[in-house]
């Protein structure tokens, strides 16, 4: 049988962690961009758009990410459409993250007092100007903690991509644990690496919060 040194375990986990990072970045960037577009569409007050986006949010919040990945990768392929793990993982993570982010941000915008919209309207600002100069800057402050909380969830959620063949951090940990038979050591290392990825995000959020709230102190 093969022998793993501690360095072998760590080295392989760190290499696998690259996938975790890449998948997280895709979910952050893609989910953020799509989520923002959906948010703006929803704020325009168009009823059809509002209902459609509401249904979209319910659909992706109400189904497990694991199933979304599975259906996108294997489900669509059953109809004979070529799906690659990359495409499925990107689409699933972006849909998933955008549904959550748009809902989180909608709440943050709703938390900006109604008077701010009315006051800016009375100054003859258009919808875009109201959003860009008055409402969104205020909503941003409220949005930092829940957004970061969700992003940290996404980092850990990328582990589910192993079901469609990505050997990311958790999957690599499982593979190594089963050949070394030292699950405690291996999963301990996995947990530490996740922490090392997530903790800086939380730290950065803390500093961002302090910066954004500078006018209020």
């Amino acid at each position: 049988m093969v022998e793993f040194t501690l360095w072998d375990i760590l080295r392989n986990l760190l290499l696998a962690a690259r996938w975790t990072v890449v998948l997280s970045l895709i979910a952050f960037a893609g989910g953020g961009a799509v989520g923002l577009v959906l948010l703006v569409l929803r704020l325009t007050g168009n009823r059809v758009a509002d209902a459609a986006i509401g249904a979209y949010v319910q659909l992706f919040q109400g189904t497990p990410l694991l199933m979304q990945l599975f259906l996108l990768y294997f489900g669509i392929a059953l109809f004979g459409v070529e799906t690659s793990p990359w495409m499925a993982a990107c689409v699933a993570l972006i849909l998933y993250a955008s549904a959550y982010l748009t809902e989180i941000w909608r709440g943050c915008v709703a938390a900006v007092p109604r008077g701010q919209w009315e006051a800016s309207a009375s100054l003859a600002l258009g919808f875009g100007q109201q959003l860009a100069h008055v409402v969104l800057p205020q909503a941003l402050r409220i949005a930092v903690p829940p957004t970061v909380g969700f992003l940290v969830q996404v980092v850990k959620g990328t582990a589910l991509a192993s079901v469609i063949g990505f050997v990311e951090l958790t999957k690599a940990g499982g593979m190594i644990a089963n050949v070394t038979y030292e699950p405690l050591l291996v999963y301990g290392c996995v947990a530490l690496i996740y922490f090392a990825l997530c903790f800086p995000i939380s730290l950065y959020a803390g500093s961002l919060e302090r910066k954004l709230h500078v006018g209020r102190r």
């Binding site: 093969v2 040194t5 392989n12 290499l15 696998a16 050997v167 499982g174 593979m175 190594i176 089963n178």
Partner: peptide, 17 residues
């Protein structure tokens, strides 16, 4: 399989064997 020794598992380079 990559998690089922001795039928399929990984070596130190994470290659299946």
């Amino acid at each position: 399989p990559t998690d089922y020794p001795p039928y399929g598992f990984v070596g130190p380079d994470l290659k299946p064997m």
